[in-house]
Design a protein around this nucleic acid. Structure first.
Length: 700
DNA sequence: GTCGGAACTG
DNA sequence: CAGTTCCGAC
């Protein structure tokens, strides 16, 4: 474990990531991208667009510049930045949207969606596809990025605007801190800061676009997180609440959006580190914590659960990845995939920047101003080839001193974590309970079986999970790791285990169900994505060939200990592809407006939201009725586990064989093969490894 | 424009 | 490790 601060505190470094802090890693590009994406100010430069998770860099040079400024790499340009982005392909954080210039798509699975369980999905939502990652609104309570504009959500569609058209106001941003001043090492401002401190400021600016109204919901970034607005009732709603899944019309109102529509980032919580983040946000936000009580603080009464306390997790980047995967997965499992959200009323869709209205307004207004500013800043030459101008970042000096973690109160003590209280669930905790979830079923199997329900129910009842659920879904998922037994059986969470635990192939998934409404059955699963179901829904993803997935390989190991059977035969599958895909259509029952096609995509099984009817008869929904609140303890876990694993393995095997074989040779493979040779411009192939040193003479 | 290898950096 | 820098290929 690497604990960041040594404080022992467990938040992931990235969570706070004081850029300024010495050891800390700097902001990662994807964080940064997300950061820009969520800010309206940058919509001219980069914005969500198209499919969920898809964004367009409208002004590559500007983005590069901003990035360079943030990283103090004045020489940064789009070429370089894009290289960095391409590295994400293999990591599966991003992938390129083919055919669209400067358009990439986030793999939200990798990002944190953990909190989704809390999402309030009750009402009907916009039906439009949004590129922005859906964020649970209800969750908004829990998480949401600070500033955003609600209005944006409104328009759904997607065309992009031609890239390059807009400009941003760098100066302004800098002032705000989006860009850091390289001069002093410390300063980098994260958005979070803004959120906290700067919120007011931004809002003001934003007001323009937002029309002001929106924010009301927002209230402000981070604060909103804590916002008490949601009662657990809300939570219930999310799950369709007892009673009325579809909608509590009364409470929510039609569209209701209790949520503020902010442009949501995929993350429930901002991943960004920030000073404030550390203090305020980080904890709640951190993915690690995501499920933590914090988020629900409002909802959760039990103090013990506080995430803060519990969080001992330390994440490495790897952990983070896994974590993210888990989240993502959960999203899928929950049926929360971004797309899935669309239908859900309360969910806020990230801003689509579809600007019809807002954008226009914004752009227009801002555009002019910014342009001017930019011009000033950039000076004519900026975009051209090499620029080295350091951006005039003079001011950004907000350094915050967020002590990285120091703030966190209880570094260790975590009552919760330990035993999870498996047995005891605080009554009010969250409405959800975790269920162990079987490994993703193959489609075939999925369909075939309806047993699932049974199992689930049993599992769910296994309360251990239940207790956790509210506390930290994530944590749970993380900790459980490969072993189901632990989750269900012992219920112990080993914080430390986080790393591997998630993805091991054999990992069980945890589902979160709303306790209150079991029948609605919208179960949510939190699972690890690592192996998502292979269905290939992805149109796009042609290739992540196994090789890349190697990264993912890790999963394989973990599990072994316990459960036996889990290893997957197919080493290579890369299931994440799904991530990029558009999620399958929402379950029929759930979305009325959606075409209810049937998709059996596993992902959607059991959407949390509306309970209307069981989507797929089979498994998804039925959850365990009985188990629910009563929380019967169960002990069946193990067997189930095995079962699941077995199934899972089988599925994977099957799918793998099919799909994988197909893919195998695709792009990457080819690359790999070819990769053995380096081709030089001469046309000669040189064996790799043989030295062909690039002569780099250039000075640093 | 995009891709990805390779060397290199902090 | 997460880029950064270069660069050839397509």
């Amino acid at each position: 474990m690497k604990t960041p601060g040594d404080t022992g505190f467990a938040f992931p470094e990235w969570a706070y990531k004081p850029e300024s802090s010495p050891g800390s890693r700097q902001i990662q590009l994807w964080h940064f991208i997300l950061e820009l994406l969520r800010k309206e100010e940058y919509h001219d430069v980069i914005a969500w667009q198209g499919d969920y998770g898809e964004f367009v860099i409208k002004d590559p040079d500007e983005v590069a510049r901003l990035w360079g400024a943030r990283k103090c790499k004045p020489q940064m340009n789009y070429d370089k930045l894009s290289r960095a982005l391409r590295y994400y392909y293999n990591k599966r954080i991003l992938h390129k949207t083919k055919g669209k210039r400067f358009t990439y798509k986030f793999n939200f699975n990798k990002l944190v969606l953990v909190n989704y369980p809390f999402i309030d999905m009750g009402s009907a939502g916009s039906s439009v596809p949004q590129s922005a990652p859906p964020v649970p609104t209800g969750a908004g309570t829990h998480f949401r990025f600070p500033p955003s504009t609600p209005s944006e959500v409104l328009s759904p569609n997607e065309d992009l605007r031609s890239p390059g058209g807009m400009f941003s106001s760098v100066a302004r941003r800098m002032a705000r801190g989006s860009v850091s001043d390289c001069s002093d090492g410390t300063s980098v401002n994260s958005e979070i800061e803004e959120g906290n401190a700067g919120a007011g400021e931004e809002r003001g600016e934003r007001g323009v676009s937002g029309g002001g109204g929106g924010p009301g919901g927002g209230g402000g970034g981070y604060r909103s997180i804590i916002h008490p607005r949601l009662s657990h009732e809300t939570l219930f709603r999310m799950y369709g609440g007892p009673g009325n899944p579809a909608g509590h019309p009364g409470s929510r109102g039609p569209a209701a959006h209790r949520i503020h529509t902010e442009p949501l980032s995929p993350f429930p919580v901002s991943p960004l580190p920030g000073p404030g983040g550390a203090g305020l946000l980080a904890p709640p936000l951190s993915p690690a914590l995501s499920m933590t009580p914090t988020s629900h603080l409002p909802y959760t009464p039990s103090p013990t659960l506080s995430p803060m306390l519990g969080s001992h997790f330390s994440f490495s980047s790897e952990d983070m990845k896994r974590y993210l995967q888990a989240h993502t997965q959960s999203v899928y499992n929950y049926g929360l995939s971004p797309r899935a959200f669309l239908p859900y009323p309360n969910i806020v869709i990230p801003q689509p920047h579809r600007p019809t209205a807002d954008k226009v307004g914004l752009s227009a207004e801002r555009g002019a101003g910014e342009r001017a500013e930019r011009a000033a800043t950039a000076g004519g030459g900026e975009r051209g080839g090499e620029r080295h101008h350091h951006p005039p970042l003079a001011h950004s000096a907000h350094h915050h001193s967020h002590p990285p973690h120091s703030a966190h109160p209880h570094p260790h003590s975590h009552p919760m974590l330990h035993p999870l209280h498996l047995g005891e669930e605080p009554p009010h905790m969250s409405p959800f309970k975790f269920k162990l979830q079987p490994p993703p079923l193959g489609r075939k199997q999925r369909e075939g079986q309806s047993q699932t329900k049974a199992r689930q129910s049993s599992l769910s009842s296994g309360s251990g999970s239940g207790s956790m659920s509210s506390t930290s879904g994530l944590g749970s998922s993380l900790s459980f790791g490969s072993d189901l037994s632990s989750a269900s059986g012992s219920g112990l969470i080993s914080a430390s285990s986080s790393t591997q635990s998630l993805n091991s192939a054999g990992l069980p998934k945890i589902k979160v169900e709303s306790i209150s409404d079991i029948e609605s059955e919208e179960e949510v699963e939190v699972t690890d994505i690592s192996d998502e179901d292979p269905d290939e829904r992805d149109e796009e993803f042609e290739l992540f060939s196994p090789c890349h997935s190697r990264a993912a390989d890790h999963h394989h190991h973990l599990a072994n200990g316990t459960a036996g059977p889990h290893h997957q035969p197919h080493p290579d599958e890369d299931l994440d592809e799904d991530v990029f895909k558009a999620p399958a259509p929402p379950p029929p029952g759930l979305m009325p407006f959606f075409t209810s096609q049937h998709t059996h995509s596993s992902t959607y099984r059991g959407l949390p939201t509306l309970k209307s009817e069981p989507t797929e008869p089979g498994e998804s929904n039925t959850t365990a009725p009985q188990a629910s609140s009563a929380g019967v303890l169960q002990t069946k876990c193990i067997p189930l586990k095995l079962r699941f694993k077995r199934r899972w393995s089988e599925d994977q095997r099957m799918e793998a064989s099919q799909e994988e074989s197909e893919k195998k040779m695709s792009g990457k493979e080819r690359a790999k093969v070819m990769g053995r040779w380096r081709w030089r411009r001469t046309g000669q192939a040189v064996e790799k490894g043989t030295a062909l040193p690039r002569q780099r003479t250039r000075a640093l």
